[in-house]
Amino acid sequence: MSPVGLYCLLFISVLVCYWVPAGCYANGKVTKVCGSMEPHHSVPGQTAHSPYSLETNSIKFSPGDQIKVTLFGTSYFEGFLLQARDAANKSLVSTVGTFTLTNLNKTQLLTCNKHQGSAVSHTSDARQTEVVVIWNAPTYAPRQVQFFVTVVKHYNLFWVKLPGPVISQDGVTPHPPQWDTTPPPVQPTTTASILPGLFTSEGCGQSKSCLLDPPGCDPKDPHCFFLSMTTEGPDKTSMIFELSGPAEGYIAFALSWDKWMGNDDVYMCVKDGDRVLVSAAFVSGRTHPEDQSEVRSENSF
């Protein structure tokens, strides 16, 4: 295989990853998004109907009461962020009250707005269908409190700040909160890329450089890993890559300054249901690639 400029094609990596395509498993430490409750992912949240719901065991409360709050759904979820807020003041992002956990293995308390234990999140990407926590009503509470939750089914599919039940202090007549009249954000339209045809090994070694595993396999074979590179343009400064192969999570290739794996740019084809998403990543040594389409930290979902 001939090098392109100072780069050379280094490897094809086939890995299985369900939560974060690049293998960066979420730990639920999402205090930096307490206000927006929005995951730092590279795709917008869903606006379609959510399969998840919140419920409480009471619609009334007094200071010091403990209210059971349950998050459940008709489908599993891998991450969540749960808060209670003042139902009458939508402009406030501060949390109300604290929570007590009932499952220390799958849930954890967070400190939002310097208010310890004022939110709950997941501890790993383990799939769940129900979470039960206890909300502790503070001494000084607004007349009405509403619960909100962000739920992540998997990395590219999540619902932001779903509204839950409204509970009222004793003596306050319950009534539905005044919902924001702002319409939901319009999903950006995208144009699907149309492939010129099935990948082929025709021209390998002549008009394009190729890698095939097993050697000599046909790219049309579902068990064949195939990578090709072709230069194009008047000055041959543009490159076209073709990448295919069997994988439950993603397949990827890297561009390297040398022949060793580590500190290299990686390009991933990530399986997302019936779609394939393409994203840039970076790999440090023999580790999972870290998605660079949006910089993540331990404070992202």
Results as ranks from 00 to 15, higher is better:
264 D>T: 13
62 S>A: 15
275 R>I: 03
46 Q>F: 02
274 D>P: 06
137 A>G: 07
5 G>A: 13
51 P>F: 04
83 Q>V: 15
283 V>M: 13
123 T>D: 04
152 V>S: 12
94 S>R: 14
274 D>G: 14
55 E>A: 07
6 L>P: 04
219 P>D: 02
59 I>D: 08
80 F>N: 05
5 G>N: 10
249 G>H: 12
13 S>I: 06
93 V>E: 07
267 Y>D: 02
147 F>S: 08
280 A>Q: 10
249 G>T: 09
75 S>E: 12
37 M>S: 05
220 K>A: 15
71 L>C: 06
24 C>V: 10
11 F>R: 11
160 V>E: 08
61 F>S: 11
141 A>C: 15
114 K>C: 03
241 F>N: 01
90 K>G: 09
54 L>N: 04
236 K>G: 08
144 Q>S: 15
70 T>A: 03
102 T>R: 13
182 T>W: 08
162 L>I: 15
220 K>C: 07
149 V>Y: 05
195 L>R: 06
272 D>W: 04
301 F>R: 00
95 T>L: 03
271 K>M: 13
63 P>S: 13
216 G>M: 06
142 P>N: 08
230 T>M: 11
49 H>R: 10
227 L>K: 01
252 A>C: 05
301 F>P: 01
85 R>N: 06
247 A>W: 11
291 D>K: 09
40 H>K: 09
137 A>P: 09
16 V>G: 13
72 F>L: 11
101 L>F: 02
291 D>G: 01
65 D>W: 04
207 S>M: 05
47 T>Q: 03
111 T>Q: 11
157 L>G: 00
123 T>G: 12
64 G>S: 07
29 K>S: 14
6 L>T: 07
180 D>Q: 07
182 T>Q: 14
44 P>G: 08
116 Q>K: 14
38 E>W: 04
100 T>A: 08
19 W>M: 08
178 Q>L: 11
17 C>Y: 01
215 P>N: 04
160 V>T: 14
98 T>H: 05
19 W>E: 14
263 N>A: 11
153 K>E: 15
232 E>M: 12
29 K>Y: 07
64 G>D: 04
198 L>S: 12
291 D>N: 14
204 C>G: 02
